[in-house]
Design a protein around this nucleic acid. Structure first.
Length: 634
RNA sequence: GCCAGGGUAGCUCAAUGGCAGAGCACCGCUUUCGUAAAGCGGGGGUUGUGGGUUCAAUUCCCAUCCUUGGCUCCA
């Protein structure tokens, strides 16, 4: 017995039935764009037999997100088929849809390169035109294994062996091509309307470096050509605001062969931005009862032996160098240093929480291939702090830190932050009770605030659970930003103590936390977030003064001095360009305020202002200029 | 680290087994101008680096460095 409810209408069947027939029976109008259906949230092909039961039925249309997903998955199949045609003997890995398209991991007998993509596309177009139906074929496990083995699909064999024996196995067949797949798929290949293969890369089987490397071919598909075109236009736009491009254009930062990969040179413009952010950070922390500390960039290996870094983090640490018969290392983290300050004297419960904060510059040896502009570098500054608390202070302190985080990030106008709670991993130190109580504290804080958060089970560090906040860049990639991490490990390793009320020596818990994570990455995200148009308070040059003709130069200098005396970051352009040219340059530099000064302004003792984003001219009296600027909020 | 692209003037990009080019930027001169580029002239290159093939290499080959995208979003 099958019972289906759609749009208030109900339909029952005694025998087997497929969704396509149901839609016909229900006389659903405009089924022409329906690629699949959803039965109680589970996606079914139009021609898949519905198992007995009662379901709510809803439609999936080609232009919907789910419809696109189904179609892209089918497109991946067609691509795999095309590749097998052009590269006989190719073994197939997996071919899922991804956020922005699809890929298929394959192991071809000969290398597939960029130049082959158009040929594969051509073959795909041929297959799409054949309009082969996608047919679902369910097979018992033994038979499925047999099919995969005979086809020489070693990876599929591995996949089948991994699948829960209780689950049924299915293949999908379109034309002469059959592939192990759980589906669902579009009814037939001609539903693929617009697609393009975008790139090739290597990808380890199951993402494990120890496994064989497969060739991953990426593609994107849409239900209309127009959407495909728009997709690429969007990518173009994203390129325009890429922090690496803007970083160079706006003269913010660079790197250099002779300095080394992953090491950043902050140009004057970038260094001002960095300074302003750090200044805001310091002020905020001093206000919130943090104590600023400052520690060296290097330390002897002895320190990192105690901290465990040499044992657990060695691969990421820059090599040691000898001085006076002792080996020194660049610091990859600030914690051992702050802890050493804590240890410099006896501590009492009355002092706790102790909050040490530092803009601590660290160096980590990142693998060659993972570096990315400012987002992933080898030398960076953590806006680090370590808070030493008694166990019963954890929750309140985490709450304070969360407040501080929102307060800080709010200044930059970030929306769409994502929060994640990471819990006890398989390997951990400390007791289960400690962990449970620590996780509970973090959870209480998030719940108490009504924060939406994801849980990453087992994602915590071996020494404690954590809360992470992610921000998104222009391409939608998430970057870890704030992190609040509990630590039972280092207090043990360094034998930290404080005298409690009964004068017993107790062990504090350390909370590691950073609001930006890495200042470099944060500024990278900011550049893209603002599209290079830094708000007035952060702009390297806040006001650019342009002269019209030589006669205004004296007056312009006077205005410049007034602005400078009032701590406005001002730049004067008195070159002999025409005013149109100077404005063009200033706009390119994305300066928030342009002040045009000519003879007229000089006589009136005024300034003709252009605020970024508008062509409107605003005339302000010189005596009111500073007042006016303080209201600029762009 | 691994796979696939790329590296030509400060930037964006052209070209070719036979003298390496343009625009912008820079410098000089002319112009002194009113809201998104005034005109003319000039300097600037061991084509990432090292090696090989060749009469001849920026081009072809090898190595190396840097850089871009990617390296479980699982049938």
């Amino acid at each position: 017995m099958i019972k289906l409810v759609y749009n208030g209408k109900e339909k029952s069947y005694d025998d087997w039935i497929v969704p396509a027939k149901v839609l016909a029976d229900l006389q659903v109008v405009d089924v022409s764009s329906v690629v699949a259906v959803e039965l109680d949230g589970k996606v079914y092909d139009l021609m898949r037999k519905i198992p007995p039961g009662a379901y709510n039925l809803s439609l999936i249309t080609a232009d919907s997100e789910k419809g696109l997903e189904v179609m892209r998955h089918s497109c991946a199949h067609v691509m795999a088929e095309a590749i097998k045609q052009l590269f006989p003997g190719t073994k197939l890995g997996v071919g899922p849809t991804i956020e922005n398209g699809f890929y298929y991991d394959v192991l071809p007998p000969t290398q597939i390169r960029d130049e082959h993509l158009p040929k594969i596309e051509e073959e795909m177009r041929r297959l799409v035109q054949k309009n082969s139906r996608f047919e679902r074929i369910e097979k018992p496990r033994d038979e499925a294994l047999d099919i995969a083995k005979k086809a020489g699909e070693d990876f599929k064999v591995e996949i089948i062996n991994q699948i829960d024996p209780k689950d049924s196995l299915s293949f999908y067949k379109d034309g002469d091509f059959m592939d192990l797949c759980r589906g669902p798929h579009i009814p037939s290949t001609s539903w693929i309307k617009a697609f393009k293969l975008t790139k090739i890369s290597g990808a380890y089987w199951k993402g494990d470096e120890k496994n064989v490397m497969l060739t991953r071919i990426y593609g994107i598909a849409f239900d209309t050509e127009d959407k495909l075109k728009k997709h690429f236009e969007l990518l173009e736009k994203a390129k325009e605001i890429d922090h690496r491009k803007l970083g160079m254009k706006l003269d913010i930062f660079s790197s250099d062969l002779n300095i080394g990969p992953g090491l950043t040179l902050w140009h004057p413009n970038g260094a001002v931005i960095k300074y302003l952010i750090e200044k805001f950070w310091y002020d905020l922390h001093l206000n919130c009862d943090y104590q600023i500390v400052s520690t060296p960039h290097i330390a002897t290996e002895d320190l990192f032996k105690i901290s465990g870094h040499l044992e657990n983090y060695k691969d990421f640490m820059y090599g040691g160098f000898e001085t006076d018969n002792r080996t020194y290392r660049l610091k990859p983290m600030n914690c051992p240093f702050h802890i050493t300050i804590y240890r410099s004297t006896n501590r009492s419960y009355k002092e706790l929480p102790i909050r040490y904060a530092e803009m601590g510059t660290v160096y980590r040896y990142e693998k060659g291939g993972v570096m990315h502009g400012l987002m992933r570098v080898r030398g960076f500054t953590i806006d680090d702090a370590h808070v030493f608390v008694a166990p019963d202070q954890v929750e309140e302190e985490v709450n304070r830190i969360y407040d501080l985080t929102l307060n800080f990030l709010g200044r930059f106008g970030f929306k769409g932050l994502e929060t994640q709670l990471s819990t006890r991993p398989k390997e951990f130190i400390g007791t289960i009770e400690e962990w449970n109580s620590a996780e509970k504290s973090l959870e209480n804080v998030l719940k108490g605030r009504g924060v939406k958060y994801g849980v990453e089970l087992g994602g915590g560090a071996f020494y404690g659970p954590k809360i992470s906040v992610y921000i998104k860049d222009s391409l939608g990639r998430s970057w870890q930003c704030s992190t609040i991490q509990l630590d039972f490990n280092l207090p043990q390793r360094f034998k930290l103590q404080y005298a409690d009320k009964t004068n017993t020596q107790s062990r504090p818990i350390i909370i590691h936390r950073a609001l930006m994570g890495s200042v470099e990455r944060f500024i990278g995200v900011l550049i893209e977030h603002y599209e290079g148009k830094f708000p007035y308070w952060l702009a390297p040059v806040q006001v650019k003064v342009l002269t019209v003709g030589k006669d205004a130069e004296e007056y312009a200098k006077e205005v410049q001095k007034i602005l400078k005396d009032n701590s406005v970051r001002v730049k004067l352009d008195s070159s002999d360009d025409r005013i149109g040219g100077k404005i063009r340059v200033a706009i390119d530099e994305k300066v928030p305020v342009i002040a045009v000064l000519g003879v007229k302004e000089s006589q009136e003792r005024s300034a003709n202002l252009r605020i970024r984003g508008s062509e409107k001219q605003t005339v302000v009296k010189l005596s009111e200029l500073i007042q006016f600027l303080s209201s600029v909020n762009s």
